[in-house]
């Protein structure tokens, strides 16, 4: 009886794992096959990866999209980490009644769905375009600016700061550091794991962001990876091999982040419940 239960557990978990992994395998296999073979349902690796890659580079703005996505994700991550950690630190280290009230109001923004923001944000950036086209509609800055910080990240850093030993801050002040110095020279280096987890969350959501770039970016030279893939997928005569190659390339950075930093990855996710 026990043995049967055990085997059923293994069979069930194997099926679930297979279903979870299969689309990845299919994507990788298809990126090495010709479009015709993909439609025939071929599940064997082919030899056309380089050819698919060449076609992808020749027929789409892949390099531009990769560079734009990388630029947006890296700048957003650096800015968001700095701004949100300063705020999270500030709210916790310099606690006061008024700042606690401000913090609670900031938290309310976590409830605002992006669906409710897309129209007014678009109008806002359309206004900005009139005075400062460099950061208005159809610029990478317009993608970065609204995501420069989130209430969740501020909350995440504030929670982590609660564990931070107060003595270290005092020691820094005794050494004659000013408040900003204490933050940069003592807090930041000590909180490496928190920063790593926050960086992963921010990088992933920025790299994968779709709806806002879809609205605000309009010209091919400002395209991003999700926009490029979405466009390829919507085509009437899709070249499956080429599209799967694009998806493989788009997934490599996030998959790499996941496998290299698995621990921080889960820590970052859990941060939202603690």
């Amino acid at each position: 009886m026990h043995k049967i239960k055990r085997s059923l557990t293994y069979i069930f978990l194997s099926i679930v794992s297979f279903v979870s992994i299969f689309p990845f395998l299919w994507m990788i296999i298809s990126s090495t096959n010709k479009s015709v073979d993909v439609t025939k349902g071929s599940l064997l690796p082919g030899t056309h990866f380089m050819e698919n890659l060449r076609n992808l580079l020749n027929t789409t703005d892949l390099t531009t999209a990769l560079l734009n996505s990388a630029q947006i994700a890296v700048i957003t991550t650096i800015l968001a980490l700095f701004i949100a950690s300063m705020a999270g630190y500030g709210f916790q280290v310099f606690r006061s009644k008024s700042r606690d009230i401000v913090f609670n109001i900031i938290l309310l923004s976590m409830m605002i769905p992006f669906a409710a923001l897309m129209v007014p944000l678009y109008r806002f950036f359309a206004q900005i375009s009139k005075v400062a086209p460099a950061i208005g509609i159809d610029t990478l800055s317009a993608v970065i600016l609204p995501t420069m910080t989130t209430a969740f990240l501020i909350f995440f850093f504030r929670q982590s700061t609660k564990m931070f030993p107060k003595d270290l801050l005092e020691a820094g002040r005794m050494d004659g550091l000013n408040e900003l110095g204490v933050f940069i020279k003592i807090y930041m280096p000590t909180m490496k794991t928190t920063y790593a987890a926050a960086a992963i969350i921010t990088f992933m959501s920025s790299w994968n962001n779709y709806l806002w770039p879809l609205i605000v970016l309009q010209t091919p030279e400002n395209t991003t990876i999700p926009l490029l893939i979405s466009n390829l997928g919507a085509g009437y005569a899709p070249d499956y091999g080429v599209i799967m190659t694009a998806i493989v390339i788009a997934t490599i950075p996030t998959a790499a982040v996941f496998f290299i930093m698995q621990k921080h990855f889960v820590a970052g996710m859990m941060g939202s419940v603690k």
Binding site: I83, A84, M86, A87, Y89, G90, F91, V93, F94, S96, R99, V102, I106, S109, I112, A116, L117, V119, P120, L121, R123, F124, L145, P146, M148, T149, A151, I154, E179, F183
Partner: peptide
């Protein structure tokens, strides 16, 4: 210290107000 404290959080608060709360008010009027 009050001023220093606010300077730590002012950028983040401005961004949230500008890109979350202001649009929500604009949407309500709209």
């Amino acid at each position: 210290t009050g001023l220093t404290a606010w300077s730590f959080i002012i950028i983040a608060v401005s961004i949230i107000v500008l890109f979350y709360f202001y649009p929500m008010i604009d949407a309500l009027l709209l």
